[in-house]
């Protein structure tokens, strides 16, 4: 029993990340509304950020900022500070996800200006009708 508990405790936040990724993918695949898809995409990216942050955590460690005072008196023990590298990487990933979100929203605005809706199936129908009209004109 203890083994199982230990196993779950040591893995559960990775599982949480995977579940979040799945929620994101589900929203992208199944939702018709483009804004909901954009939200799903963002959940996906946030889940990966959480994944990296979990990689970097250490038990009984503090934030990766050294103190000026004891810099000469004390030798730095790496186990006292969490792994700073994933934090750096995720700062980049956060910026990337913000940039993608901005571009996605402006594309959504442009789509709304052109089709008057954000439902994907209606847009697909309109494009199909447009193509049909075009092919009829071509035939004439």
């Amino acid at each position: 029993m203890d083994n199982y508990l230990f196993f779950i405790v040591s893995k559960f936040n990775y599982w949480g990340v995977m579940i979040l990724i799945m929620i994101g993918i589900y929203a992208i695949i199944s939702k018709q509304n483009l804004i909901k898809k954009i939200i799903g995409m963002n959940i996906f990216q946030t889940a990966i950020i959480l994944f990296y942050i979990s990689i970097g955590s250490k038990k009984n460690a503090s934030i990766p900022i050294l103190h000026h005072l004891n810099e000469h008196t004390q030798k730095i023990n790496p186990d006292d500070f969490v792994n700073p590298l994933p934090h750096v990487l995720m700062l980049t990933a956060i910026v990337v996800s913000v940039a993608t979100l901005g571009v996605a929203l402006s594309l959504a605005i442009k789509i709304y200006q052109q089709f008057g809706t954000l439902e994907e199936n209606i847009i697909n129908n309109k494009i199909a009708a447009d193509n049909n009209r075009q092919s009829v004109i071509d035939r004439l």
Binding site: I28, K37, M41, Q45, I48, V103, A104, L107, K110, I123
Partner: peptide, 20 residues
């Protein structure tokens, strides 16, 4: 714009899988 947004969804999934 619609084609590009579809590309954006797929591209972001692809890049995120690469990051994973």
């Amino acid at each position: 714009a619609f084609a590009s947004l579809k590309y954006l969804f797929m591209g972001t999934i692809g890049a995120s899988f690469y990051l994973l």
